[in-house]
């Protein structure tokens, strides 16, 4: 498979088609060769460890700002008690999945793109092919399974961190009542919201992994090639996740 090179719209459509063929080839490869389960644990660990610290910090600051902005917006309406509700609803339904996805895209996604990109330019992927080992099953499958295991867990973690930091700001910076905050925070959430968050997480994870691996797998040569692949991987995955998020939310929460 070689990449086309033409005007932007054609290139984008061609890119989508090329990506679809890649995914199809990947599915075929896994059906034929299975998943190297031994590598999955290592990949999960790496993805989790890579993304966790950053995610916690970002989720923390998002929680703080949710509290600050919620307070600033609702106070003129006399609704400052609702801050807890605002933080937990926005956090659970929308922000936690997207932030977890973005950070995983930024950390693990770029890692995948650059790892596969370097392997491509050093002919290591060709070497796998010539040694009759399917590179898609060997390289991409463990990463995909890893991310599917890790991202939902990270989503749940972000929820807790967001609510906790929102609470901290509400009580210690804004002087609100902690009990009221938590009361409103918990009433707004249904168990199914957590489930939806997990589902979103898994869908985003699959998207991030396949897109990043695709960019790395077909990386152009030279140091610019790897840089470009990692660049495009993170932007494309982030944009696709956010766009897809609307449709998922519409299905999950729209009436």
């Amino acid at each position: 498979m070689s990449r086309p090179a033409e005007p932007l719209l054609l290139r984008t459509l061609g890119g989508v088609g090329h990506y679809a063929l890649f995914v199809a080839a990947f599915v075929r490869a896994v059906r034929r060769h299975g998943v190297p389960w031994g590598a999955v644990l290592g990949e999960s660990y790496r993805i989790g460890v890579l993304s966790l610290p950053v995610l916690l910090v970002i989720a923390g600051f998002v929680g703080t700002n949710l509290a600050l902005q919620g307070h600033a917006a609702f106070t003129p309406l006399g609704g400052q008690r609702l801050v807890g509700l605002f933080v937990s609803l926005a956090g659970v339904r929308e922000l936690a999945p997207i932030i977890a996805a973005s950070m995983v895209a930024a950390k693990a996604g770029t890692e995948m793109a650059s790892q596969l990109g370097v392997m491509r330019i050093r002919e290591q992927i060709d070497a796998l092919e010539v040694m009759a080992v399917n590179p898609l099953a060997f390289l991409v499958a463990p990463r995909l399974v890893g991310i599917l295991l890790v991202l939902p867990a990270l989503t749940v973690l972000s929820i807790f961190v967001m609510v906790a930091s929102g609470y901290a700001v509400a009580v210690h910076q804004l002087g609100l009542n902690g009990h009221v905050f938590l009361e409103f925070a918990t009433t707004g959430i249904r168990p199914v919201d957590f489930l939806y968050g997990q589902i979103k997480g898994m869908i985003f994870g699959a998207l991030i992994c396949t897109v990043s691996c695709w960019y790395g797998y077909f990386c152009e040569s030279g140091p610019e090639g790897v840089g470009r692949a990692t660049n495009r991987a993170v932007v494309t995955s982030a944009v696709l996740c956010v766009a897809l998020n609307y449709f998922l939310s519409e299905i999950m929460y729209g009436r």
Binding site: M119, R122, E123, Q124, D126, A127, E129, V130, A132, N134
Partner: peptide, 22 residues
């Protein structure tokens, strides 16, 4: 197809330019 291709490749070995070691 992949099966036939891999059957042939199992009977060959290749040294790449920079070794292509993992």
């Amino acid at each position: 197809g992949e099966a036939a291709l891999y059957a042939v490749r199992r009977r060959m070995g290749m040294l790449f330019q920079d070794g292509a070691l993992f």
